[in-house]
């Protein structure tokens, strides 16, 4: 479990994050979102033990992580700006990490490398950006960490590889009961992956919770009518984001999903379909409730 407790990190006079707290339980994936420069990387580096916080603390399984050899030998940090030794190959990097991670598994290394279709004997500086990211993920998984930190790790990956990575992470998390913290500026990337999400804005976490809890009391429906309908027809149903396109209507119904469904059914639509709320929709809704302007955050 990762716990950030009132963490503050400053760079000279500039405060990057302030009194920031979050928890990533074991066996879960936490998505950290925010605009560019919000403090995601700063937080990840602080959790990884690269930065020493000016205030607060970071605990992993109850122990402070900074300068904690044992904890860090079970933690892997995949930075946004990845590093490989000059003119090295994946095999050599594997040998490099093997020296620092007692659980390093060559078996896993070979399998995941094969999964991505990478040549471990070829120089990494000859790989494309996307391939380098894959290589880094391979190495990360090979260290068999209990805690995995990924910073913008989907950048440069094609949609197919993204899916592979997501599946890999999900499977690994389930099998090994690890805590994974992923940062991204793109909510779509974290769709269907994260159990928890947190939004950094203004140096703090402004929104934090499980996806399930955040989507509680909200449901999204698509309806098809055989007649034109207007907003007036929906006044009796608590809703948001009503969109009428001729006879097709989409809306977010508030309150208990069963009640909402029953009320919509009473309107005798030809078709009534419940769809999954996207993370973006959840966040937009929450941000409005908090009084934050979504445009300012998501540009």
């Amino acid at each position: 479990m990762i716990e950030a407790v009132s963490v503050t990190k400053k760079f000279g006079d500039f405060t990057a994050i302030e009194n920031l707290s979050l928890t990533v339980p074991k066996g879960s994936i936490y998505g950290l979102v925010g605009y560019n420069g919000a403090g995601k990387t700063t937080l990840l580096k602080t959790v990884a033990g690269v930065y020493r916080p000016e205030g607060g603390k970071v605990l992993i399984d109850g122990e402070p992580v900074f300068e904690n050899e044992k904890k860090k030998q079970r933690l892997f940090y995949v930075p946004d700006d990845i590093y490989f030794k000059p003119y090295t190959t994946m095999r050599k990097m594997a040998a490099f990490y093997k020296g620092y991670y007692p659980n390093f598994s060559y078996d896993t290394f070979e399998k995941v490398t094969s999964l991505f279709g990478l040549d471990p004997t070829k120089r990494i500086n000859g790989f494309s950006k996307g391939m380098q990211r894959q290589a880094e993920v391979v190495l990360a998984m090979s260290t068999m960490p209990d805690t995995l930190l990924l910073d913008e790790s989907f950048d440069g990956l094609d949609p197919q590889k993204r899916t592979v990575v997501k599946e890999l992470l999900y499977d690994y998390m389930r099998q090994k009961d690890v805590a994974i913290l992923i940062s991204s500026h793109n909510l779509h990337e974290l769709q269907d992956l994260c159990d928890y999400v947190g939004l950094i804005n203004g140096k703090r976490i402004v929104l934090n919770g499980s996806v399930k809890d955040l989507s509680k009391g909200k449901a999204k429906y698509r309806l098809v009518f055989d007649r034109p309908v207007t907003e007036q027809d929906f006044l009796s149903i608590p809703h948001k984001r009503l969109n009428i396109d001729g006879s097709i209507v989409t809306l977010m119904a508030l309150g208990q999903p069963e009640d909402a469904y029953a009320r919509l059914k009473e309107m005798s639509p030809l078709l009534i379909e419940e769809t999954v709320l996207t993370l973006e929709e959840i966040f937009l809704d929450e941000m409005e409730a908090e009084g934050h302007e979504a445009k300012k955050i998501f540009g």
Partner: peptide, 18 residues
């Protein structure tokens, strides 16, 4: 393939790498 486990000694490893 047989699992290869690492017997990590970070200090020695760092020294050798250097």
């Amino acid at each position: 393939m047989k699992q290869k486990r690492s017997s990590a000694n970070p200090f020695t490893h760092t020294f050798a790498e250097s």
